[in-house]
Amino acid sequence: MEAAIVIRGVSKVFAGRNGLRVAALEQIDLTIGAGEFLCVVGPSGCGKTTLLRILAGLEQQSAGRVEIRSGEPGKPLTSMVFQETSIFPWLTVKDNVAYGLRMRRVPPAVQEPIVEHYLRLTGLDKFRDAYPHQLSGGMKQRVSVARAFANDPSILLLDEPFGSLDEQTRLLMQEELLRIWEAHRKTAVFVTHSIDEAIFLGDRVLVMTARPGRVKAILEVDLPRPRDLVNLRSQPAFLDLSRTIWHYLREEVRAEEHAGRKL
């Protein structure tokens, strides 16, 4: 598989308060293939989000090299779906979805069909003129997902996009995300704290260590697509993988717990 993202020896140190320096990431080496769906799990505060923000260009790594290979010239490299509600309250659903295209000065006539396509794909077409305050939490994250897809980036970055949703809505959103992703097969990096979610969605699962975040293990998810998320849970392969990931993760979560401190 052709590589879409190559990460070599990436570290990130934050200058904290009182001159304390906090290492968030340490010596990350990772290659992500074009069209691959990679899920990242790790204990809270392990630098998962920092890794995504570096890929998104929102943070600069302290050391190491990140190379993102763009598929086509003219396309944006990355688009991010943020963890918290990040759609603009002052824009309608339609204008939120069109935001990336508008920033790239795509002519309105070209924007229109793209935006309509993703509104329909995410079931938002009836709400195109609504403002975010009129939408439920799930609907808001749909807008956020549609906004990232509509921008047509080489790489999609998703930072626990469904973390704040209730269990049922989350399952629905995972199914929808897979459906949209399977229609477009973009390279995706998905950060989550849920082992189930990581296996549901990913081609591979990256397990990170407690802070400073390092690569603990990378596991292949050998489950056929398209996946039926409801039946997946009872398959032996799913259960095995889930157990393995938890085995790796457990020591790290415990280490984080015993460290017993927050930033």
């Binding site: 929102l58 990040s86 990336g100």
Partner: peptide, 27 residues
């Protein structure tokens, strides 16, 4: 801050920061 991050990650220009984030957000 998240809205500034969003604008930055979607490649907003300085003018875009004024017109699509700062002005409507501060209205």
């Amino acid at each position: 801050r998240i809205y500034l991050d969003v604008a930055r990650s979607f490649g907003a220009s300085r003018r875009d920061f004024y017109l699509t984030v700062a002005l409507p957000g501060a209205l």
